[in-house]
Design a binder for these strands. Structure first.
Lengths: 240, 240
DNA sequence: CTAGGTGATACTAATATAGCAACGATCATT
DNA sequence: AATGATCGTTGCTATATTAGTATCACCTAG
């Protein structure tokens, strides 16, 4: 984290936002003890934070007393969407990129995950690409790799300390080598090891970089350069 | 507010979220004292909350030390957008409504304001309609009126206690009469008193209602019914 | 120079929160 | 049925954490 810790940081707010984000990124309703385990926070505390969020309307309790997003989440989405301004600038540019016939995506890094604002395979309507995917482990995603490469090695080490790294079975050194390569090239090219044998090409945008733009599909080595050029132009336009 | 206050509500989180929302809905960078005045909270407290948000990356300080949205706001937008699911469901439906040739909008109520997720006049690309407008006073907006009408009169009275009500110079009784009419009809039709002599037709969506869909433009009395039908069908499709 | 604005921090009082223990539900297994 | 292991939730109390005052340095306008 770049900004310094201030004189009297509000710990309740820090934990509260963490709880809110954990709630938002959970695809299914979750209970407080479950969420507490994910966050490594005392479950009673998480319970009270969730109840506070429920009071604000941001969270809501289902019939079986688990928690999920409430109506206030729409409000928060509208407000943060406007404040961020990212989609407003990016969407027209992203639509332009779809002419290549590949999947086009825009995402941001959160901890060791990538959260997608836009993710549209060819064929679907562009308007269906919004808020379609929640989270993916950063190391399984081109956008994740390119955004991780913006961090110092130390920070990445800290992030994956004592943990398995998806897609990098040999561990942290293998990941750091990949990140070094990405820094050198200025873009990420990763192979998706599923049945479809896809490749992803991704670049970062913003200064400092806080979002990534990517195209994925069947992309042979020779086709990489023009796609990178197009992505860079798009990133430049978005990042303004 | 519907949900009960729990045993130990976290006041720091409540004020922190209020600060976050006030920051997000401010079109320009703001200082902590200025924001404190808007929120009616002690300025030192707001300052510390802002610094905490800055530490989290959600806020950011400009060169002149004012605060504005930071990179973390993108993350929050992506997460809440996904969690809310509202745009994902609504956008394709909203695009369909544009065939009428009017401005199409989707918004949510926040305090006495309406925050827009989508607002697209005819002619512009649909993708430009996202996050385009921040806040409007609820009483100046068709969506605002229809969402206010979902509240009890008491709550509306509380909201506008000791305050001017935009568009309702005669005060609270005039507003309540309008809301009663909206409840009876099941939709809002309001006249926009600007140079263009526009009308807005709006309905609510969701159960309980937490968003509004509207069309605005030059809409004569006789054309209202089919538009309301189309809006209701759209609201039904969105609200699930 | 003053006057009034800003953001930021040290200090101390007091309050709001953390964490323990416990309760009633619910569910699966015995 | 009985058991045991979950779950969400709350009362309680010590104490960590926050609120609010006073104060600072900085800036701009007059």
């Amino acid at each position: 984290m770049r900004p310094k810790l201030n004189a009297q940081p509000n710990k309740s707010l820090i934990d509260g936002i963490a709880t809110l984000q954990a709630l938002a990124t959970s695809p299914d309703p979750v209970g407080s003890r479950e969420l507490a385990r994910r966050l490594n926070i005392d479950s009673v505390k998480v319970n009270r934070l969730l109840k506070t969020l429920a009071y604000l309307g941001i969270a809501r309790q289902t019939a079986d007393r688990k928690y999920t997003a409430g109506p206030g989440m729409h409000v928060l989405a509208a407000q943060s969407l406007f404040a961020s301004g990212l989609i407003r600038n990016a969407l027209p540019v992203l639509e332009g990129l779809r002419r290549f016939g590949h999947t086009v995506a825009l995402g941001v890094l959160w901890q060791d995950n990538v959260s997608y604002l836009f993710h549209a395979p060819p064929g679907i309507e562009a308007s269906r690409g919004l808020g379609r995917i929640g989270l993916l482990p950063a190391t399984t995603s081109g956008i994740g790799i390119v955004l991780l490469s913006e961090h110092e090695d130390d920070e990445v080490r800290e992030l994956y300390k004592d943990r398995e790294i998806p897609m990098f079975p040999e561990g942290i050194e293998q990941l750091l080598a990949k990140l070094a390569e990405v820094r050198r090239l200025g873009y990420a090219r990763v192979h998706v090891a599923d049945a479809r044998d896809h490749h992803v090409v991704a670049v970062s945008t913003g200064d400092p970089a806080h979002a990534g733009v990517a195209m994925s599909g069947w992309i042979p080595e020779a086709a990489t350069a023009p796609l990178v050029d197009a992505l860079r132009a798009a990133a430049n336009e978005i990042g303004g």
